[in-house]
Design a protein around this nucleic acid. Structure first.
Lengths: 228, 228
DNA sequence: ATATAATGATAGTAATACTATTATATTTGC
DNA sequence: GCAAATATAATAGTATTACTATCATTATAT
């Protein structure tokens, strides 16, 4: 029926881990604490050794779950995109009006995550920040084509393609639906980053959200050449 | 008169180097060869030791020019943005029509660089690729606020602000000029990357350029609510 | 011709990103 | 309840990175 069903339980490409971190307490601790530590220290200063110390466990034990820290990042960000995809499809599934559907999707995709779902070991607020600060490092590598073939980016690609389809429904004449969809995702993250670190480069701030900016941008563009 | 004059000779913030690489043959070789090597190997696999071997020089000599490879990246990208700024201001200085001016600027900023200026040791074609693949790594760090205060990103910020001013001239009513300006820069790079590695996420390809996509996006947005 | 500056050679350090081995818990299957 | 299997911990070790320090050599400038 829908590709979403495969991902409902937030199933991650199993090439991204050696042993499923969801399958044990240690695994969950690795995920939980790594999210905290990557936020605190930043990606470059985060190591498995430090993580081991933090969770009172051993470096070598972490290596039994993840081949290296790059794969852990891919795992965490895949989880995040999958979780967002779920939110998006769930919230917009029943909406018939294409504009309203796209509007809601942009909202979900570009908003700042402010509350943790709280019943899992994964803190979505922090994970959102990791995605803002570190996601591009997961694909800006020499290995990107190989890893793309391995399917490490499928979830993200599926999100973009869903968005693209919604854009097409709003305006089938628009000739850059894929580019616009990827811009929404990417600019959403980037404007959040600028707001926090380069305030002169953005109009977003405490009162104006990236969502507002992008919604305005997208609908202005799509309404052009469109008979209401 | 204009801030550009300060940068005409592509003067780089001198906190970015210990000894000016333009001041010696070895310095120029470091710049020339590092551009090649970063392209070949990717940022993560590039080291000063390898660079030293390549130019028949010593690791320790390179450290006399640059404190570390992060600063070298900041140097190279600053050079690139400064060079682009020069191109942009030079090409649009005499244009009176605000739309035409913005149009030309977007063209210069988002086009793929295809020919090397050839009379310097800096290969702009390769440098453009480095910026596409590595620029975000220069600011997605825990040190970004400190380094921003040191002025390591001024050139980039000045480029965005120039673009913002041109946007305002086209439509003074538009409420997101800074965000749109930063989106042009950022999406310009991103769409180039997608074209090369995630073709399903973009409509850009051999025939359609990021410039076309972004020009369309920007002018559709700005023409909205605008009396021609 | 000599002082000064630039570069090269060598060595060394602490940290990273792992791999390998062995020991010790913990779980499970009967 | 015990043996077997599995998971984790402890320790050690390797190659590489990202430097710093020292000293020797070479070029340049006065």
């Amino acid at each position: 029926m829908d590709r979403l069903l495969q991902g409902v339980k937030i199933r991650i490409n199993d090439k991204l881990f050696i042993k499923d971190p969801e399958s044990s307490e240690l695994g969950k601790k690795i995920i939980e604490k790594s999210i905290q530590m990557i936020n605190e220290k930043g990606w470059e200063n985060f190591t498995f050794k430090k993580l081991g110390n933090e969770i009172g466990s051993n470096e070598s034990s972490i290596y039994r779950y993840f081949e290296n820290k790059h794969k852990l990042l891919l795992y965490l960000t895949s989880w995040y995109w999958s979780w967002l995809e779920y939110q998006m499809v769930f919230a917009t599934n029943s909406i018939k009006n294409p504009k309203e559907k796209l509007f809601q999707s942009i909202l979900i995709i570009t908003r700042e995550i402010k509350e943790d779902s709280d019943f899992s070991h994964i803190n979505e607020v922090l994970l959102n920040k990791i995605v803002i600060n570190e996601y591009s490092k997961s694909y800006l590598t020499k290995e990107v084509d190989k890893e793309n073939k391995e399917g490490y980016f499928v979830v993200y690609k599926r999100l973009v393609s869903r968005l693209r389809d919604m854009i097409k429904e709003v305006n089938p004449e628009y000739i850059y639906p894929s580019s616009l969809a990827s811009t929404i995702l990417e600019s959403g993250l980037h404007q959040h980053f600028l707001k926090d670190h380069f305030s002169s480069l953005t109009d977003c701030n405490a009162n104006v959200t990236p969502t507002q900016y992008l919604t305005h941008l997208v609908f202005n563009t799509l309404n052009q050449n469109l008979n209401e």
